Computed example of a mutant assay.
Amino acid sequence: MSNLIVINTSFNPWYNLALEEYLLDKVTDYDNILFLWQNANTVVIGRNQNAWRECRTELLESEGGKLARRSTGGGAVYHDSGNLNFSFILPRSSQDFLIQAGIITKAVGKFGINAYVNGRNDIVTDQGKFSGNAFTYRKNRALHHGTVLVDVDREKLGRYLQVSKEKMQIKGIKSVQSRIVNLKEYDSGITVERVRDAIMQAFVEEFGQCEIADCSKEIDIFDRKFDMAEVHRTYEIYSSWEFRYGEAPKFDIEWANRFSWGEVVIHLTLKNGVIIKSRIYSDALDELFIANIRQCFDNVPFKKKDMAEAVVKQHPDSPMAKDIAEYILSKEM
Protein backbone atom coordinates (compact mmCIF):
# COMPACT_ATOMS: atom_id res chain seq x y z
CA MET A 1 0.00 0.00 0.00
CA SER A 2 1.39 3.41 -0.97
CA ASN A 3 0.34 6.72 0.54
CA LEU A 4 0.89 10.36 -0.37
CA ILE A 5 0.71 13.61 1.59
CA VAL A 6 0.38 16.78 -0.51
CA ILE A 7 1.02 20.20 1.06
CA ASN A 8 0.16 23.27 -0.98
CA THR A 9 1.17 26.84 -0.14
CA SER A 10 -1.24 28.63 -2.49
CA PHE A 11 -4.10 30.52 -0.86
CA ASN A 12 -6.09 30.66 -4.13
CA PRO A 13 -9.32 28.65 -3.65
CA TRP A 14 -9.88 27.96 -7.35
CA TYR A 15 -6.37 26.55 -7.73
CA ASN A 16 -6.70 24.47 -4.57
CA LEU A 17 -10.02 22.97 -5.67
CA ALA A 18 -8.63 22.26 -9.13
CA LEU A 19 -5.63 20.47 -7.63
CA GLU A 20 -7.92 18.52 -5.32
CA GLU A 21 -10.03 17.35 -8.27
CA TYR A 22 -6.87 16.36 -10.15
CA LEU A 23 -5.69 14.28 -7.18
CA LEU A 24 -9.08 12.58 -7.04
CA ASP A 25 -9.45 11.84 -10.75
CA LYS A 26 -5.93 11.50 -12.12
CA VAL A 27 -3.52 10.39 -9.39
CA THR A 28 -4.02 6.63 -9.20
CA ASP A 29 -0.56 5.50 -8.08
CA TYR A 30 -1.41 5.86 -4.38
CA ASP A 31 -4.01 4.15 -2.23
CA ASN A 32 -4.52 6.93 0.30
CA ILE A 33 -3.86 10.64 -0.24
CA LEU A 34 -3.95 13.47 2.31
CA PHE A 35 -4.08 16.97 0.80
CA LEU A 36 -3.55 19.92 3.18
CA TRP A 37 -4.33 23.44 1.96
CA GLN A 38 -5.59 26.89 2.90
CA ASN A 39 -7.63 29.64 1.28
CA ALA A 40 -7.53 33.38 1.97
CA ASN A 41 -10.70 35.41 2.63
CA THR A 42 -12.95 33.01 0.74
CA VAL A 43 -16.54 31.79 0.92
CA VAL A 44 -16.90 28.26 -0.47
CA ILE A 45 -20.43 27.12 -1.32
CA GLY A 46 -21.67 23.58 -1.89
CA ARG A 47 -22.15 22.15 -5.36
CA ASN A 48 -25.93 22.72 -5.42
CA GLN A 49 -26.24 26.01 -3.55
CA ASN A 50 -27.43 29.41 -4.76
CA ALA A 51 -24.50 31.81 -4.36
CA TRP A 52 -26.67 34.89 -3.81
CA ARG A 53 -28.72 33.18 -1.11
CA GLU A 54 -25.75 31.81 0.85
CA CYS A 55 -23.25 34.67 0.67
CA ARG A 56 -23.16 38.46 0.68
CA THR A 57 -21.25 38.26 -2.58
CA GLU A 58 -20.96 41.98 -3.32
CA LEU A 59 -19.58 42.72 0.16
CA LEU A 60 -17.16 39.79 -0.05
CA GLU A 61 -15.72 40.81 -3.40
CA SER A 62 -15.62 44.52 -2.55
CA GLU A 63 -13.34 43.61 0.36
CA GLY A 64 -11.01 41.55 -1.82
CA GLY A 65 -12.53 38.16 -1.07
CA LYS A 66 -13.28 35.31 -3.44
CA LEU A 67 -16.32 33.11 -3.97
CA ALA A 68 -15.69 29.45 -4.84
CA ARG A 69 -17.97 26.51 -5.56
CA ARG A 70 -16.75 23.05 -4.57
CA SER A 71 -17.58 19.63 -6.02
CA THR A 72 -19.25 18.32 -2.86
CA GLY A 73 -22.61 18.93 -1.23
CA GLY A 74 -23.23 20.60 2.12
CA GLY A 75 -23.42 24.23 3.12
CA ALA A 76 -21.40 27.42 2.72
CA VAL A 77 -18.23 27.94 4.76
CA TYR A 78 -15.77 30.77 5.29
CA HIS A 79 -12.03 30.15 4.87
CA ASP A 80 -9.14 32.39 5.84
CA SER A 81 -5.53 31.90 6.92
CA GLY A 82 -6.75 30.83 10.37
CA ASN A 83 -8.42 27.77 8.86
CA LEU A 84 -6.79 24.57 7.62
CA ASN A 85 -8.46 22.39 4.99
CA PHE A 86 -7.86 18.68 4.68
CA SER A 87 -8.83 16.30 1.87
CA PHE A 88 -8.77 12.53 2.20
CA ILE A 89 -8.75 10.73 -1.17
CA LEU A 90 -9.12 6.99 -0.79
CA PRO A 91 -10.43 3.83 -2.48
CA ARG A 92 -14.22 4.01 -2.42
CA SER A 93 -14.38 0.45 -1.06
CA SER A 94 -12.38 1.31 2.05
CA GLN A 95 -13.31 4.90 2.86
CA ASP A 96 -14.98 5.29 6.27
CA PHE A 97 -16.02 8.68 7.63
CA LEU A 98 -15.44 7.62 11.23
CA ILE A 99 -11.90 6.43 10.48
CA GLN A 100 -11.04 9.64 8.63
CA ALA A 101 -12.72 11.81 11.27
CA GLY A 102 -10.76 9.83 13.86
CA ILE A 103 -7.54 11.12 12.29
CA ILE A 104 -8.74 14.68 12.95
CA THR A 105 -9.92 13.98 16.52
CA LYS A 106 -6.64 12.18 17.25
CA ALA A 107 -4.67 15.13 15.88
CA VAL A 108 -6.45 17.74 18.02
CA GLY A 109 -6.27 15.34 20.94
CA LYS A 110 -2.50 15.83 20.86
CA PHE A 111 -3.25 19.35 22.16
CA GLY A 112 -5.42 18.03 24.99
CA ILE A 113 -8.68 18.82 23.17
CA ASN A 114 -11.48 16.24 23.37
CA ALA A 115 -13.27 16.17 19.99
CA TYR A 116 -15.91 13.88 18.54
CA VAL A 117 -18.25 13.40 15.58
CA ASN A 118 -21.67 14.98 15.94
CA GLY A 119 -24.62 14.89 13.54
CA ARG A 120 -24.31 14.15 9.85
CA ASN A 121 -20.94 15.73 9.11
CA ASP A 122 -19.52 17.79 11.98
CA ILE A 123 -16.53 17.32 14.26
CA VAL A 124 -17.03 19.23 17.50
CA THR A 125 -15.90 19.86 21.03
CA ASP A 126 -18.22 20.50 23.96
CA GLN A 127 -17.98 24.22 23.14
CA GLY A 128 -18.89 24.07 19.45
CA LYS A 129 -18.10 22.97 15.92
CA PHE A 130 -14.61 23.36 14.51
CA SER A 131 -14.81 21.05 11.49
CA GLY A 132 -17.48 20.68 8.81
CA ASN A 133 -17.10 17.80 6.35
CA ALA A 134 -18.41 16.91 2.89
CA PHE A 135 -18.05 14.08 0.40
CA THR A 136 -18.17 13.07 -3.25
CA TYR A 137 -17.54 9.80 -5.05
CA ARG A 138 -16.22 8.46 -8.32
CA LYS A 139 -16.52 4.88 -9.56
CA ASN A 140 -13.53 3.67 -7.56
CA ARG A 141 -12.43 6.67 -5.51
CA ALA A 142 -13.87 8.77 -2.71
CA LEU A 143 -13.19 12.31 -1.55
CA HIS A 144 -13.81 13.42 2.03
CA HIS A 145 -12.76 16.96 2.80
CA GLY A 146 -13.29 19.35 5.66
CA THR A 147 -12.19 22.37 7.65
CA VAL A 148 -10.28 22.82 10.90
CA LEU A 149 -10.96 26.20 12.51
CA VAL A 150 -7.78 27.20 14.31
CA ASP A 151 -8.08 30.98 14.50
CA VAL A 152 -10.72 32.06 11.96
CA ASP A 153 -11.96 35.66 11.85
CA ARG A 154 -15.43 35.27 13.38
CA GLU A 155 -16.49 38.79 12.44
CA LYS A 156 -15.88 38.26 8.73
CA LEU A 157 -17.45 34.80 8.87
CA GLY A 158 -20.63 36.32 10.29
CA ARG A 159 -20.70 39.21 7.81
CA TYR A 160 -20.18 37.17 4.64
CA LEU A 161 -22.34 34.12 5.30
CA GLN A 162 -26.13 34.29 5.10
CA VAL A 163 -27.66 31.47 7.14
CA SER A 164 -31.40 30.87 6.92
CA LYS A 165 -33.52 31.50 10.01
CA GLU A 166 -34.93 27.98 9.67
CA LYS A 167 -31.45 26.44 9.91
CA MET A 168 -30.55 28.49 12.97
CA GLN A 169 -33.83 27.59 14.67
CA ILE A 170 -33.31 23.87 14.05
CA LYS A 171 -29.71 24.08 15.27
CA GLY A 172 -30.85 26.06 18.33
CA ILE A 173 -28.39 28.91 17.70
CA LYS A 174 -28.70 32.69 17.54
CA SER A 175 -25.99 33.26 14.92
CA VAL A 176 -23.52 31.35 12.79
CA GLN A 177 -20.66 32.68 14.96
CA SER A 178 -22.17 31.21 18.14
CA ARG A 179 -22.12 27.71 16.68
CA ILE A 180 -18.38 27.50 16.03
CA VAL A 181 -15.23 27.33 18.13
CA ASN A 182 -11.62 28.07 17.24
CA LEU A 183 -9.06 25.57 18.55
CA LYS A 184 -6.91 28.53 19.64
CA GLU A 185 -9.53 29.24 22.29
CA TYR A 186 -8.28 26.14 24.10
CA ASP A 187 -4.58 26.92 23.82
CA SER A 188 -3.13 30.22 22.60
CA GLY A 189 -0.04 28.33 21.41
CA ILE A 190 -1.94 26.33 18.80
CA THR A 191 -1.10 27.35 15.23
CA VAL A 192 -2.19 26.15 11.80
CA GLU A 193 1.31 24.73 11.26
CA ARG A 194 1.19 22.69 14.48
CA VAL A 195 -2.27 21.35 13.64
CA ARG A 196 -1.11 20.46 10.12
CA ASP A 197 1.83 18.52 11.54
CA ALA A 198 -0.45 16.71 14.01
CA ILE A 199 -2.85 15.66 11.21
CA MET A 200 0.05 14.39 9.12
CA GLN A 201 1.32 12.36 12.08
CA ALA A 202 -2.14 10.89 12.76
CA PHE A 203 -2.53 10.03 9.05
CA VAL A 204 0.78 8.15 9.07
CA GLU A 205 -0.22 6.36 12.26
CA GLU A 206 -3.44 5.20 10.57
CA PHE A 207 -2.19 4.28 7.09
CA GLY A 208 1.57 3.83 7.42
CA GLN A 209 4.56 5.60 5.91
CA CYS A 210 3.86 8.26 3.27
CA GLU A 211 5.62 9.97 0.44
CA ILE A 212 5.42 13.73 0.90
CA ALA A 213 5.01 16.37 -1.83
CA ASP A 214 5.50 19.70 -0.07
CA CYS A 215 5.87 22.68 -2.41
CA SER A 216 7.09 24.86 0.47
CA LYS A 217 10.24 22.72 0.56
CA GLU A 218 10.53 21.79 -3.12
CA ILE A 219 9.15 24.61 -5.22
CA ASP A 220 8.93 22.53 -8.40
CA ILE A 221 7.67 19.31 -6.84
CA PHE A 222 4.17 19.63 -8.34
CA ASP A 223 5.58 20.29 -11.81
CA ARG A 224 7.61 17.09 -11.55
CA LYS A 225 4.90 14.86 -10.07
CA PHE A 226 1.66 16.12 -11.60
CA ASP A 227 0.28 17.22 -14.95
CA MET A 228 -0.04 20.90 -14.08
CA ALA A 229 -1.48 21.74 -17.51
CA GLU A 230 -4.46 19.53 -16.58
CA VAL A 231 -4.73 21.27 -13.20
CA HIS A 232 -4.77 24.68 -14.88
CA ARG A 233 -7.49 23.57 -17.31
CA THR A 234 -9.63 22.62 -14.32
CA TYR A 235 -8.68 25.90 -12.65
CA GLU A 236 -10.26 27.79 -15.54
CA ILE A 237 -13.56 26.08 -14.75
CA TYR A 238 -13.44 26.67 -10.98
CA SER A 239 -12.49 30.32 -11.43
CA SER A 240 -15.15 31.09 -14.06
CA TRP A 241 -18.12 33.29 -13.19
CA GLU A 242 -20.47 30.77 -14.82
CA PHE A 243 -19.35 27.93 -12.55
CA ARG A 244 -19.22 29.97 -9.35
CA TYR A 245 -22.46 31.90 -9.77
CA GLY A 246 -24.45 30.19 -12.48
CA GLU A 247 -27.55 31.78 -13.89
CA ALA A 248 -28.99 34.69 -11.91
CA PRO A 249 -32.19 33.42 -10.33
CA LYS A 250 -35.38 34.83 -11.89
CA PHE A 251 -38.54 33.03 -10.85
CA ASP A 252 -42.22 33.39 -10.05
CA ILE A 253 -42.43 31.12 -7.01
CA GLU A 254 -39.96 30.15 -4.29
CA TRP A 255 -40.57 27.33 -1.84
CA ALA A 256 -38.10 26.55 0.94
CA ASN A 257 -38.12 23.82 3.55
CA ARG A 258 -35.60 22.24 5.88
CA PHE A 259 -35.65 18.47 6.15
CA SER A 260 -33.66 16.27 8.53
CA TRP A 261 -31.04 15.84 5.77
CA GLY A 262 -30.77 19.47 4.65
CA GLU A 263 -32.50 22.55 3.26
CA VAL A 264 -34.18 22.58 -0.15
CA VAL A 265 -35.10 25.73 -2.07
CA ILE A 266 -37.29 25.32 -5.16
CA HIS A 267 -37.56 28.08 -7.79
CA LEU A 268 -40.35 27.84 -10.37
CA THR A 269 -41.12 29.93 -13.44
CA LEU A 270 -44.66 29.48 -14.80
CA LYS A 271 -46.51 30.08 -18.05
CA ASN A 272 -50.15 29.17 -18.65
CA GLY A 273 -50.22 26.83 -15.65
CA VAL A 274 -47.10 24.91 -16.69
CA ILE A 275 -43.65 25.07 -15.09
CA ILE A 276 -41.39 26.20 -17.92
CA LYS A 277 -38.27 26.41 -15.81
CA SER A 278 -37.25 25.06 -12.41
CA ARG A 279 -34.17 24.98 -10.20
CA ILE A 280 -33.54 23.20 -6.93
CA TYR A 281 -30.83 24.38 -4.53
CA SER A 282 -29.74 22.51 -1.43
CA ASP A 283 -27.06 22.05 1.20
CA ALA A 284 -27.75 18.29 1.27
CA LEU A 285 -24.61 16.19 1.49
CA ASP A 286 -25.86 13.88 -1.28
CA GLU A 287 -24.88 16.24 -4.08
CA LEU A 288 -25.60 13.73 -6.86
CA PHE A 289 -29.22 13.32 -5.78
CA ILE A 290 -29.81 17.09 -5.88
CA ALA A 291 -27.98 17.43 -9.20
CA ASN A 292 -30.20 14.71 -10.71
CA ILE A 293 -33.46 16.40 -9.68
CA ARG A 294 -32.49 20.05 -10.23
CA GLN A 295 -34.72 20.44 -13.29
CA CYS A 296 -37.21 17.65 -12.69
CA PHE A 297 -40.22 20.02 -12.73
CA ASP A 298 -39.51 21.46 -16.18
CA ASN A 299 -42.60 21.18 -18.44
CA VAL A 300 -44.68 19.71 -15.59
CA PRO A 301 -48.15 21.15 -14.86
CA PHE A 302 -48.18 23.37 -11.78
CA LYS A 303 -50.24 20.88 -9.80
CA LYS A 304 -49.23 19.21 -6.56
CA LYS A 305 -49.87 15.66 -7.73
CA ASP A 306 -47.95 16.08 -10.99
CA MET A 307 -45.00 17.71 -9.24
CA ALA A 308 -44.85 15.07 -6.51
CA GLU A 309 -44.88 12.33 -9.13
CA ALA A 310 -42.14 14.07 -11.12
CA VAL A 311 -39.65 14.13 -8.25
CA VAL A 312 -40.38 10.56 -7.13
CA LYS A 313 -40.08 9.34 -10.73
CA GLN A 314 -36.46 10.53 -10.78
CA HIS A 315 -35.57 8.47 -7.68
CA PRO A 316 -38.41 6.09 -6.79
CA ASP A 317 -36.48 4.41 -3.96
CA SER A 318 -35.10 7.55 -2.37
CA PRO A 319 -36.43 8.65 1.05
CA MET A 320 -35.26 12.18 0.17
CA ALA A 321 -37.42 12.23 -2.97
CA LYS A 322 -40.39 11.02 -0.95
CA ASP A 323 -39.79 13.76 1.65
CA ILE A 324 -39.84 16.42 -1.07
CA ALA A 325 -42.98 14.90 -2.62
CA GLU A 326 -44.76 14.93 0.74
CA TYR A 327 -43.75 18.53 1.28
CA ILE A 328 -45.16 19.52 -2.14
CA LEU A 329 -48.43 17.71 -1.44
CA SER A 330 -48.73 19.66 1.83
CA LYS A 331 -48.51 23.04 0.07
CA GLU A 332 -51.58 25.20 -0.39
CA MET A 333 -51.91 26.11 -4.06
Score class of each variant (00 low, 15 high):
residue 3 N to M: 13
residue 9 T to N: 15
residue 15 Y to M: 11
residue 21 E to C: 03
residue 29 D to E: 12
residue 36 L to N: 01
residue 37 W to E: 04
residue 45 I to A: 02
residue 47 R to W: 12
residue 52 W to K: 07
residue 53 R to Q: 09
residue 54 E to D: 11
residue 55 C to W: 00
residue 56 R to D: 14
residue 57 T to K: 07
residue 58 E to K: 11
residue 60 L to K: 03
residue 69 R to K: 11
residue 70 R to W: 08
residue 70 R to K: 11
residue 71 S to L: 14
residue 81 S to W: 01
residue 82 G to W: 06
residue 86 F to T: 03
residue 87 S to P: 02
residue 87 S to A: 15
residue 89 I to K: 03
residue 90 L to W: 02
residue 95 Q to I: 13
residue 97 F to K: 10
residue 97 F to M: 13
residue 104 I to C: 04
residue 111 F to A: 09
residue 112 G to L: 12
residue 119 G to S: 12
residue 121 N to C: 10
residue 124 V to A: 12
residue 126 D to A: 14
residue 127 Q to Y: 09
residue 128 G to Q: 08
residue 130 F to V: 01
residue 130 F to N: 00
residue 135 F to T: 03
residue 137 Y to I: 01
residue 138 R to Q: 15
residue 140 N to G: 11
residue 142 A to T: 08
residue 144 H to S: 08
residue 145 H to E: 09
residue 147 T to C: 09
residue 148 V to M: 06
residue 149 L to E: 01
residue 149 L to D: 00
residue 150 V to L: 07
residue 153 D to V: 06
residue 156 K to Y: 10
residue 161 L to W: 01
residue 161 L to S: 00
residue 162 Q to H: 10
residue 163 V to H: 01
residue 164 S to P: 06
residue 164 S to Y: 05
residue 165 K to Y: 09
residue 167 K to E: 13
residue 170 I to Y: 11
residue 176 V to I: 15
residue 182 N to C: 08
residue 182 N to H: 03
residue 183 L to S: 05
residue 186 Y to W: 13
residue 187 D to P: 04
residue 187 D to M: 04
residue 189 G to W: 03
residue 189 G to C: 00
residue 195 V to T: 05
residue 198 A to E: 06
residue 200 M to P: 07
residue 201 Q to Y: 02
residue 204 V to F: 05
residue 205 E to P: 02
residue 207 F to R: 04
residue 218 E to D: 14
residue 221 I to R: 03
residue 221 I to M: 03
residue 221 I to T: 06
residue 226 F to T: 06
residue 227 D to T: 13
residue 228 M to F: 12
residue 229 A to Y: 09
residue 230 E to D: 13
residue 230 E to Y: 11
residue 236 E to D: 15
residue 238 Y to I: 10
residue 243 F to Y: 15
residue 245 Y to W: 12
residue 249 P to I: 12
residue 250 K to R: 12
residue 250 K to Y: 05
residue 253 I to G: 01
residue 254 E to A: 11
residue 261 W to I: 04
residue 265 V to Q: 08
residue 267 H to D: 10
residue 271 K to P: 01
residue 271 K to Y: 10
residue 272 N to R: 13
residue 272 N to L: 12
residue 279 R to V: 06
residue 286 D to T: 08
residue 286 D to L: 09
residue 293 I to M: 08
residue 296 C to S: 13
residue 300 V to H: 08
residue 301 P to K: 05
residue 305 K to S: 13
residue 308 A to I: 07
residue 313 K to I: 04
residue 317 D to T: 15
residue 319 P to V: 11
residue 319 P to I: 12
residue 320 M to D: 13
residue 321 A to N: 05
residue 328 I to A: 06
residue 329 L to N: 12
residue 333 M to L: 14
